[in-house]
Amino acid sequence: MENYLLILIGTVFVNNIVMSKMLGLCPFMGVSKKLETAIGMGAATTFVLTLASGLSHLIDTYLLGQELAYLRTLSFIVVIAGIVGFTEMFIKKTSPVLFRVLGIYLPLITTNCAVLGIPLLNVQEQHGFVESLVFGLGGALGFTLVLVLFAAMRERLEAADVPAPFRGTSIAMISAGLMSLAFMGFAGLIK
């Protein structure tokens, strides 16, 4: 139990997928202009990532094994694409507004390197099934956390007197850098 908790805290804070592993920067920059969109994106990614972690672990362990290891990336991508496709239909039905604001970023969860990265890291770290699920959930929660906080910051930044050359994505990148600086404070917390 403590092990799972450590994995969770570790992936959410210490080794945050965005802030310390620098994965998933595309949606992090792209879907953080509005707080509500960011929350929706976070929820969608959490769903996809947790499911993908578990499924890909099962596939890796029971279908691929050692001899078919070369199919890992391929099959993971297929699984992720399937889950994303499902999520897309689900969101389109339940929240058309969210579907529209997420726009291209929703299908792009497929190519979100964080979503592929976490199942691959699971294999690398030789996580068991539950560990993989927790690792996926933690990574996704960490992603959602920074995405949502970052979106709230950007909403305020939007109205700031940022000098012209730094406006828009530029100052957002700088802010992300400073966020990352702050997250370094968690260094040494686990392991």
Binding site: I59, L63, L64, L68, L71, L74, S75, V78, V79, A81, G82, G85
Partner: peptide, 12 residues
């Protein structure tokens, strides 16, 4: 390999 990929594809 073909079977595995086909299986995954079918289920999804």
């Amino acid at each position: 390999a073909i079977l595995v990929m086909a299986g995954i594809g079918l289920v999804l």
